[in-house]
């Protein structure tokens, strides 16, 4: 006999968020399963360190579980999750761990990156050269597809500053990844 939880994989996200809000752990688990990949990718772009990114993603989901009762509109789960992710990342930045993690890579991580030729690794390496605030704005703009206004609202940064961060950050990234525009098929192959 089927249980209600067996149908969770087919349920809309807002419905799952609503169930999780009322304490349904299986619904929360399904939300984590659905969102973990995009969350880890976002954190990877932020910090450039896969292990740290996974840990930060876990912190985000733990925050979700602890605070989901405060989520008024389950349909806004996606935006709320992004807000928590940015909040966790900014906390990490304040603790200076992220700066150390991004700029002073551990030996194994650095070696792994050197050995890697994937686009993701090159992108993360280029992102790590950006100042923290620029990286945040660029990632939210290019990875999350947010508008400048949304980034300003989310990060509490003035709109003009966000615009210049995105513009300057993109310019630097473009320079750092210029090889892709010259020989895209070689690099990506």
């Amino acid at each position: 006999m089927h249980q209600a939880q067996d149908y969770y994989p087919e349920c809309p996200e807002a419905f799952l968020a609503s169930l999780a809000r009322s304490g349904d752990r299986r619904a929360f688990e399904e939300l984590v399963r659905r969102r973990q990949s995009s969350m880890r990718n976002l954190m990877r772009r932020f910090c450039g360190d896969h292990a740290l990114a996974d840990d930060l993603a876990q912190q985000v989901f733990l925050k979700v579980w602890l605070n989901i009762r405060g989520l008024r509109r389950p349909s806004a789960f996606s935006a709320w999750l992004r807000r928590l992710a940015v909040s966790v990342w900014l906390q990490q930045v304040r603790r200076q761990d992220a700066l150390r993690g991004a700029n002073e890579l551990s030996g194994s991580e650095a070696a792994r990156r050197e050995a890697s030729t994937s686009v993701g690794m090159d992108l993360d390496r280029a992102l790590a050269t950006l100042p923290e605030s620029e990286r945040l704005s660029v990632v939210l703009s290019y990875h999350e597809g947010l508008t400048h206004g949304e980034i300003a609202e989310l990060t509490g940064t003035p709109l003009g500053t966000v615009k210049s961060h995105v513009r300057n950050g993109a310019q630097r990234l473009r320079q750092a990844l210029s090889a892709y525009s010259e020989e895209p098929e070689v690099k990506r192959g």
Binding site: S37, H143, L173, L177
Partner: peptide
């Protein structure tokens, strides 16, 4: 270009 790189870097 950056848009396509970000999209390509996204792994499942």
């Amino acid at each position: 270009l950056l848009q396509s790189l970000f999209a390509e870097a996204e792994q499942e």
